[in-house]
């Protein structure tokens, strides 16, 4: 598997797949954990505690602040599973880990078929280590 940890950590939760990339700044409310971008197909969806699948990041670098704030407030996804590396999302999660010792692992799956396969499963356990990523389907 070609997956790589951008931010290490463990998480367990229900899978939520976003049909379009989301800009956390302007598109996500850190107070409620909901998608507030009116043009996003999943407008209104709550991302809190989910194993979030989004292909890539989008939008302003202030998204890193919004994600870090959501992790602090406990409204963030439990883990973020990207198809490609994204510096803004990685930064938000790294800073939350540094400031609050709360993990929101971020993984770049880097394989389209694998990303689609995993995103169709109902629940996952994610162990994003420095050297290896372990993703286990849950009942």
């Amino acid at each position: 598997m070609s997956a790589r940890s951008l931010v290490i950590g463990k998480a367990l939760g229900a899978v939520l797949k976003l049909d379009d990339p989301l800009s956390f700044w302007g598109g996500f409310d850190s107070a409620s954990g909901k998608v507030i971008d009116r043009f996003h197909p999943q407008h209104g969806a709550c991302l809190s505690g989910a194993i979030l699948f989004m292909e890539r990041g989008r939008g302003s670098s202030s998204g890193a602040s919004v994600l870090a704030e959501a992790i602090r407030l406990g409204t963030a996804p439990a883990a973020i599973m990207l198809l490609q590396e994204d510096a803004i999302i990685a930064t938000g999660a790294l800073v939350a880990q540094m400031l609050y010792q709360i993990d929101c692992p971020v993984v770049a799956i880097r394989d389209q078929a694998e990303w689609h396969r995993l995103s169709a499963l109902p629940r996952l356990a994610v162990e994003a280590g420095a050297d290896a990523v372990l993703i286990t389907p849950q009942a």
Partner: peptide
């Protein structure tokens, strides 16, 4: 220095 919440300030 544009405030996006407590995390901005804590950092």
């Amino acid at each position: 220095c544009l405030y996006h919440g407590q995390a901005s300030l804590d950092f």
